[in-house]
Design a protein around this nucleic acid. Sequence first.
DNA 1: CAAAATTTAATTGTGTACAATTTAAAATAT
DNA 2: ATATTTTAAATTGTACACAATTAAATTTTG
Lengths: 142, 142
Amino acid sequence: MKPQKYDALKLENQLCFPLYAAAKEVVHRYKPFLDPLGLTYTQYITMMVMWEHKELTVSQIGEYLHLDTGTLTPMLKKMESNGLILRQRSKRDERETIISITPEGKALRKQAIEVPAKVSSCVNLTLDEALQLKSLLEKIII
Amino acid sequence: MKPQKYDALKLENQLCFPLYAAAKEVVHRYKPFLDPLGLTYTQYITMMVMWEHKELTVSQIGEYLHLDTGTLTPMLKKMESNGLILRQRSKRDERETIISITPEGKALRKQAIEVPAKVSSCVNLTLDEALQLKSLLEKIII
DNA sequence: CAAAATTTAATTGTGTACAATTTAAAATAT
DNA sequence: ATATTTTAAATTGTACACAATTAAATTTTG
């Protein structure tokens, strides 16, 4: 088949589309493992940074997760009411809201430890392919 | 550094996170080129399948784009009111809503033809890397 | 053929996601 | 020291995204 004028606009020729679809697909694959923990995917990656750092400002979380306050503020309020984190104004700088992890939030880590292996076992990639994919994706994010 | 118990839960060790972040990033890179066309990213990929097929049911669009009616119905109504498509119940099978492209929608293709090249020029991948990435992503989508 | 099952969209409800604006606090610049 | 600018979150508004339900039409089945 000879190249056609609008080939560049065919869905099958896009890189963006499999990227968009694969991202949604992977979030979807997490769901059965996160539901029992009472976490959404975005809450899960938020807990990941909280498990590592214990205490962060909203904008620090935003930098790690590439999310803005319009997404984070309502979600963090929900997570607070679910008992996973605390939200307190910083005394050093009243503009900042410090997010800290509660004992309950900390405890959830023990159950979450199983999640990564469970998910990767249902993603159809070898370890090598996964590493390759990860490094290509990181070039896009900069 | 010796491996730690919770390494599997570190954000930096996840494949899912760069996938999630890269997908959002790429949609973001489309914005400056789609805004002048009056299209969102999701509307853009919808137009892609409409430019190719002229006429599709809602669920056929959903299959191509991996989207369900909860997403599509309101978006298609918006695209109809923007004059890009028509929504009509099928006479052959009254359950189906046939989406067809309008002359206006068809005309938009001429402006959109520039978009793919513009976007790929601001994504930091060689052609070879892009093809490799695409094929890895397609393994996830199945 | 009539009842049951399936299919197709639409709807409802919840949860992101981000642009743009607002508000308050802190930093800086005169 | 006060006015200006900058910064940090919160808020507002728009647009997905999907699970679950509903409603209507069609197909299948006894």
